[in-house]
């Protein structure tokens, strides 16, 4: 905002705001920090009842111990394959679909669009059993496809793409059509290059959703060799005898890919969302 107040007062205000925001950030960060502090704590101190906000020992061995006790790397590999394949498929399909909703007029469009939107609202627990039956009948249980395909038509993604593409000028498309370009060429050569920001957003969100997916993989992937990171974490937590250092170490490792992605793509994410015409 543009301001009319004096520079001194403004500096004072900014300082106060900064302190407030930093204090808030400290609170927000504490749970993550506490995971870390728990993960590297000596095992026998976990339940000692002593309050030590700072790490009392740096037992990095807890990480390697946790990794040697469970096939975390296999889980990560499964999660990566699922998330990456899902990003490629979901983002492509959503771009195609969102483009059609944004730039064409056709019979049944509004009804279809509302249908898509309402699909976003169904809690998966309501349809999980029928969904399982469908996946089982298609022979996709315990396969990567069994968790990728059911979520490929991501309502939220279609919605975002549509909102973004509405703002692409029609004139550009018309000009390409007059040059004799096919509809697919127009999409690939004209629309996609303009859509980079929204593609970045979709990639980040889709990766995040699939990486964090839980309820669907839980019923589809029953073979432990197919487990994802989230299923592994759930298995750990569900074992009778809770080992908090292991759980926190694994939970922290499970966050790592998302952290890396967010730190590197933060700017693209915000610009991309800004580009969806949220104004």
């Amino acid at each position: 905002m543009v301001t009319t107040t004096s520079p001194a007062r403004q500096r004072f205000e900014t300082g106060g705001l900064w302190l407030l925001l930093t204090a808030g950030a400290a609170v927000m960060f504490f749970p993550i920090y506490w995971m870390f502090a728990t993960a590297i704590r000596p095992r026998d101190e976990i339940f000692s009842g002593a309050v030590n906000l700072l790490p009392t020992g740096w037992v990095w061995g807890n990480f390697t111990a946790a990794l040697s006790r469970m096939p975390f790397l296999d889980w990560t590999w499964n999660s990566l394959i699922i998330a990456i394949a899902a990003v490629v498929i979901t983002v492509s399909l959503n771009l195609l679909c969102g483009y059609a909703f944004a730039k064409f007029r056709f019979a049944g469009r509004d009804i279809l669009f509302i249908g898509v939107l309402s699909a976003l609202m169904i809690p998966i627990q309501v349809i999980i059993v029928p969904l399982f039956l469908v996946v089982a009948d298609l022979g996709l249980l315990n396969s990567y496809w069994g968790v990728i395909l059911p979520r490929a038509a991501e309502a939220f993604g279609i919605f975002m793409v549509r909102q973004f593409m509405v703002s692409i000028p029609d004139e550009l498309l018309e000009a390409a059509r007059l040059d004799g370009a096919s509809e697919l060429t127009i999409f690939l050569k004209v629309v996609l290059p303009l859509s980079k920001p929204i593609i970045a957003v979709l990639i980040i969100f889709t990766f995040m959703w699939r990486w964090n997916d839980f309820v669907l993989p839980l019923v589809i992937l029953t073979d432990q060799e197919m487990y994802t990171v989230q299923l592994g974490l759930n298995l750990l937590k569900g074992q009778y005898n809770t080992e908090w250092t292991d759980i926190m170490a694994i939970a922290l490792l499970s966050l790592a890919p998302m952290l890396v992605i967010f730190v590197f793509f933060q700017r693209q994410l915000i610009q991309g969302i800004a580009g969806t015409g949220l104004k």
Partner: peptide
């Protein structure tokens, strides 16, 4: 037909994995 072709893959998956279970 063009718009329908663009939404077809999505619609197919929607029908199989969302509308049918619903």
């Amino acid at each position: 037909l063009t718009p329908y072709l663009f939404i077809a893959p999505n619609l197919l998956l929607f029908s199989i994995f969302v509308f049918f279970p619903l």
